[in-house]
Amino acid sequence: MLELQGVGRRFGNHWAVNAASIKVPDGQFVGVIGRSGAGKSTLLRMINRLVDPSAGRILHDGREVSALRGAELRRWRQTCAMVFQQFNLVGRLDVLTNVLMGRLNHVPLHRGLLRLWSDEDKAIALSALEQFDIAAIAAQRADSLSGGQQQRVAIARALVQEPRILLADEPVASLDPRNTRVVMDAIQRINRHYGITVLVNLHSLDLARGYCDRLVGIAAGRVVFDDAPAALTPSVARELYGLEAAEVLDGEAGLEPDGLVPATA
């Protein structure tokens, strides 16, 4: 169980996230939705502690992870893997080494630094790559891959961490529709097959509805919606997205009678 208690983060005078409280049971697939700049990224980055909360507590199975430091913090980060919008791979290294980065917290320091991976580590990495149909490119350099392939490598890296939670920050925002599906299916597989809790930031409501068990809506740093996808009515969507609503809802029939003009751009 991951629990956020009144978590907030301030940048200067601006609260990017303000008093957010949610409880996520193990194995849930949670979509975090909201317009750009609403605070979705900051929320996820606080859970992984890439950003430290200015207020509130983050608990995992009763342990306060927002207070961890040093080796304990690194162990926590291994437990909650992160996937980024821009993939964040090391472009000059080959795919397999990139995936093996996910094992760093499992191996002694000198083995990691000298790249002395055990056969077991290699097997875990290759097994992950095979699950996402990219084992054939294990020897290629990461910067030679397409966006969809890179994101699958990043998800493989996250999986070999043996995480309990997967945090995905806009994982498909840089991808075309076909790759969007491939990548979202990969994340769904991790959730279904291994029971790993998933928190994913999504801009598109269609995707959020299609994949998530539960949606958390954020507007101006505050949690304004927290329910099953079916409960997300057009009026709630409008509150969440403002003028962007027509765009993210893809001109759904429910919107036009309310007098909202679909975006044409």
Binding site: D119, E120, K122, A123, I124, L126, S127, A128, E130, A135, A138, L159, V160, E162, P163, R164, Y194, G195, I196
Partner: peptide, 20 residues
């Protein structure tokens, strides 16, 4: 649960070794 990933990979080690 996490060790399911490890166990799965260990079980497939021979075939993985052969393929790669």
């Amino acid at each position: 649960r996490p060790s399911a990933i490890r166990a799965e990979a260990a079980a497939r080690l021979p075939e993985l070794r052969q393929r790669h």
